[in-house]
Design a protein around this nucleic acid. Structure first.
Length: 660
DNA sequence: GCAGACCTAAACAGCC
DNA sequence: CGGCTGTTTAGGTCTG
């Protein structure tokens, strides 16, 4: 297996294949009873770990019982071999919790289910940590071996060797990234607890090759644990210490015991601006007096009030967890993008016979490359519409490197289920903020907008200068605003006509140039409001449509269980995709809530501080930002979608339509 | 189970 | 005649 990945690393597909091999390997290390699914997500991993942890607990109990029975009958004590315990159990049990403790816990039920869950997660964390170490160690040894073999090869093949070294470096990089992502994911979910002095072998082995940025990331991760341990209280590592002198104690009723506080904040550090992390009054989530928690943007006079706010408003709960997971995906996508760009740079350097073998001499802002490539975008700072990434961005699995393909296909996007996400009609609330907010997303992503036809028609009409549109203009608005409506025109146009006729709120007015449609707001408001249902349908739709990992979906569902969650209200997170998704969910959750605080009016996703996200692509096609710098043309967008067979329909519209 | 909202499909008519 | 527009009906799903 490692041989395979080693050889594959020499070709262009090394990234995906190698990573996939890593994951496969990883799974094998964990267990051979894993599901035979071809791709694995972090949620799968977590689920599996939970199952395994439960199994561990059972094993421990069984072992305990057998031991106690053995004590009662000393005859068997010597000959009776210890029950078969999985390797992982053998590895973890002595370090984490003794069987006695476990049994005591279970028998006396001294702990709440949440605490039990926390314990289980700690068990899983240690178990997985060791598995990870083992896996990465093997991976590293293999790579190192191959590298050495290459170095001892014939000198006549020096060029080949250097190229293969490059490939090895790339593989190393990807291994590191995989490792980082695994660790970060686990840490951010509070599942992994690394002791400060517990560096993985990979780190030291490949230190010279680690990109500075990854090293920095690593430092951040480990430092967070250093700090955390220093500030550990009786609460163990659940304490929420946000670099404040006195951590504010708060109830921790969530099962993700150690997800809060520093983990998140340090994870999100990359998103923040160039704050000086070493200053006592700085925080990655705090900048220019504003809370930088995605979607928050609360203003604070002093750092202390911010910390208070952080502890109170962004405490460990489902909402924060969901937001954190989204952020995880953002980061992972950025990392993926970074790795790809670095590979490209490497290839360029190799091609130009640059001698350096360092992946990159200096750390680069994650969005720098993309900033450059985006410099030609429209003045209104819309994201490059030509990028086909949007619908796939949030679908990225938690192990993106392993699943850059086959996660989602254009076909899957096209096979969107029936429109049942009609949250915009609930309480007849306006959809304009959301549409404005997620304009670019819907323009690019062939994702069915979660609005009813009636709402969309109304929106189209209200957006027009005279608040009236002809049928054809309404059509054009649909195709212009939503990539989804560039296909199956017959269907949705029929639906539009049907809605126009059916709903009283749409009034046909004979005009000089024909008939136009207007909106009777009173009638529109009269329509029966729908109760908010907690919207499992939306979650399901988003999940199925966009290929959300179950974990993220669950997180969103969990966060939707709460009310009024401003996930990512504006461009704060920087990804129009995630932004829009989250916003859609937020809308769904808010229901009739006031949109006034959604910043929809002044929130152009195009001003995203992380335009790099626009380049994220989980599809099979290689990322080629240079090829997507064309004018903001929806046709261009369409043509970049491999399975975009709407051209017939849309080009008809395009003929008589001013594009933006 | 029911009613309502919604979506999709289709038939049909009138107009250009 | 064909396409567009507009109306209406029918059947289905989903939700409260």
């Amino acid at each position: 297996m490692m041989q395979e990945s080693g050889t594959e690393a020499t070709n262009g597909t090394a990234n995906q294949n190698g990573a996939a091999a890593c994951v496969e390997r990883h799974r094998e290390v964990q267990s051979k009873s894993a599901t035979p699914s071809s791709d694995i997500t972090a949620s799968d991993l977590v689920n599996f770990q939970q199952q395994q942890a439960l199994q561990v607990a059972r094993q421990i109990l069984l072992q305990q019982q057998q031991q106690s029975s053995a004590l009662k009958s000393p005859k068997n004590n010597d000959k009776q071999p210890a029950p078969q315990v999985p390797v992982s159990v053998a590895m973890m049990t002595p370090q984490v919790i003794t069987p006695q403790q476990m049994q005591q816990i279970l028998q006396h039920q001294v702990l709440s289910p949440q605490q039990l869950q926390l314990l289980l997660q700690q068990q899983q964390a240690l178990m997985l940590q060791q598995q990870l170490q083992e896996f990465y160690k093997k991976q590293q040894e293999q790579l190192h071996l191959q590298l050495i073999q290459q170095q001892h090869g014939s000198k006549q093949q020096s060029k080949e060797v250097s190229a293969q070294q490059l490939a090895f470096q790339q593989q190393l990089l990807q291994v590191q990234q995989l490792q980082q992502q695994h660790l970060l994911s686990l840490q951010r979910q509070g599942l992994l607890s690394i002791q400060p002095n517990q560096t993985l072998p990979l780190h030291s082995l490949t230190q010279g090759m680690i990109p500075v940025e990854l090293q920095q990331l690593w430092k951040e991760v480990t430092n967070s644990y250093v700090k955390e341990e220093n500030s550990a209280t009786n609460n163990g590592h659940r304490g929420l210490d946000l670099s404040s002198p006195s951590p504010v104690p708060h109830k921790n009723h969530n099962q993700h015991g150690s997800t809060n506080g520093q983990y998140i904040s340090h994870s999100l550090k990359r998103e923040g601006s160039a704050l000086d992390d070493h200053s006592p009054h700085s925080h990655p989530l705090y900048g220019h007096g504003v809370c930088k928690w995605p979607g928050c943007e609360a203003v604070f006079d002093d750092f202390h009030s911010f910390l208070k706010h952080l502890n109170n408003e962004h405490a460990l709960d489902d909402r924060s967890t969901a937001q954190c997971r989204v952020q995880m995906q953002v980061v992972q996508q950025l990392e993926l993008q970074l790795s790809k760009d670095k590979e490209r740079l490497q290839a360029m350097m190799t091609h130009l016979h640059v001698k350096s073998t360092e992946p990159k001499p200096t750390p680069q802002p994650l969005n720098l490359v993309s900033n450059v490539t985006l410099s030609k975008t429209a003045p209104e700072a819309s994201p490059p519409l030509s990028l086909p990434q949007t619908p796939t961005t949030p679908t990225a699995p938690l192990t993106p490197l392993s699943q850059t393909h086959s996660v989602i296909t254009p076909t899957s996007l096209h096979s969107v289920g029936p429109m049942r996400r009609r949250y915009s009609d609930k309480y007849n609330m306006p959809i304009s903020p959301d549409i404005v907010q997620n304009k670019e997303f819907y323009m690019n992503a062939e994702v069915r907008p979660p609005f009813t036809y009636a709402s969309l028609i109304r929106q189209a009409i209200l957006e027009s200068p005279e608040r009236q549109l002809t049928l054809n203009e309404i059509y054009n608005w649909f195709t212009r605003m939503f990539a989804y409506f560039r296909r199956n025109a017959a269907t949705w146009k029929n639906a539009v006509r049907h809605n126009l006729s059916l709903h009283k709120c749409f009034v046909r007015v004979e005009n000089v140039k024909g008939a136009v449609w207007t909106v009777d707001e009173l009638e529109f408001q009269k329509r029966r409001p729908q109760k908010i249902s907690g919207s499992p349908a939306l979650v399901k739709n988003i999940h199925t449509t966009l290929g959300y990992g179950p974990a993220l979906s669950a997180a969103f569902q969990a966060s939707m269980a709460e009310n009024n969650i401003p996930l990512y209200t504006t461009a704060s997170i920087g990804s129009p995709t995630l932004n829009s998704l989250a916003s859609a969910i937020r809308e769904e959750m808010n229901g009739a809530m006031d949109h006034g605080n959604s910043n929809g009016s002044d929130s152009s996703p195009g001003r995203s501080p992380l335009p790099a996200m626009h380049h994220i692509n989980v599809k099979e096609e290689p990322l080629d930002p240079e090829e997507h710098e064309g004018p903001l043309s929806l046709v261009t967008t369409a043509n970049h979608s491999p399975d975009f067979d709407h051209n017939r329909d849309y080009e008809d519209d395009h003929g008589n339509e001013d594009m933006l």
